[in-house]
């Protein structure tokens, strides 16, 4: 499918000059292709930006996360540590990754070895841990999504990827109704991971199966 004017690639010595040519050529082709000057039309944004007033946003979030076969717990600030302890015990977690920003109070008195990421753990070491606990940047009720953006209580992306259990703490104030509301709160310069349930695939006969490469178990704890 190569066009006749293109030299064969692969000779790295020539790439420095041909790369500049490629940029100018592609931009030139686009200008030519748009010679008809298609009209500018305003973008209609008549879709919903927020949920109807009075919606129980935390309740909807809990319901939607549950639809993905994640485990959802609702608790209060006072009950948080006990809820975390129960979630870890249920999975027999003994060694737990926790980024530096995870408050000591979350794990106070829980019989689990807290493993920090400073200096950074090697990937094989991370892979051998039983689980990871993080906070989140924002959560979306309508889609049951949590978003991590590498904040101090979330750590780098590999931390919430390699261990097989992810326990995510969501403060109810972090839950917004819709995707547009979430994007408005997020900072594009930070690396983000949007998570909607545990790892899953639909690749075998288009039936959803939980548990492939990411954490196979997702416990979401919503703190009122």
């Amino acid at each position: 499918m190569s066009s006749p004017e293109v030299e064969p690639a692969g000779s790295s010595g020539r790439r420095a000059t041909s790369a500049g040519d490629a940029r100018e050529t592609v931009l030139g082709r686009i200008h030519d292709a748009l010679a008809d000057a298609p009209p500018r039309v305003p973008i209609p944004r008549d879709y919903e930006h927020a949920l109807p007033p009075g919606t129980d946003i935390a309740g909807l979030f809990v319901e939607r996360v549950g639809d993905y076969r994640a485990t959802v717990h609702r608790t209060t600030t006072a009950g948080l540590t006990a809820t975390i302890a129960a979630a870890l015990a249920a999975q027999r977690v003994t060694r737990l990754a926790a980024p530096a920003g995870v408050p000591d109070t979350w794990l106070a008195g829980i019989e689990v070895e807290r493993v920090g990421d400073d200096p950074p753990l090697s990937f094989p070491a991370l892979d051998r841990l039983d689980g990871v606990i993080t906070g989140c940047a924002v959560a979306i009720a309508e889609t049951g999504t949590i978003v991590l953006d590498g904040g101090p209580d979330q750590g780098r992306r590999a931390l919430s990827l390699l261990p097989d259990l992810h326990v995510c703490i969501v403060m109810s104030s972090q839950i917004v109704g819709t995707v547009p509301e979430a994007l408005a709160r997020l900072d594009s310069t930070r690396p983000q991971t949007w998570i909607s349930g545990p790892s899953a695939t639909s690749d075998i006969e288009l039936q959803r199966v939980e548990g492939v490469h990411g954490p196979r178990r997702l416990d979401v704890i919503v703190v009122e």
Binding site: R64, T193, R208
Partner: peptide, 21 residues
């Protein structure tokens, strides 16, 4: 695509981030 309200994972990154990825 997969008939879900949201797909399980979406990654968004901007250039490189020191110490992450």
């Amino acid at each position: 695509a997969t008939a879900e309200r949201m797909n399980p994972y979406t990654s968004m990154w901007t250039g490189v981030t020191a110490g992450d990825g």
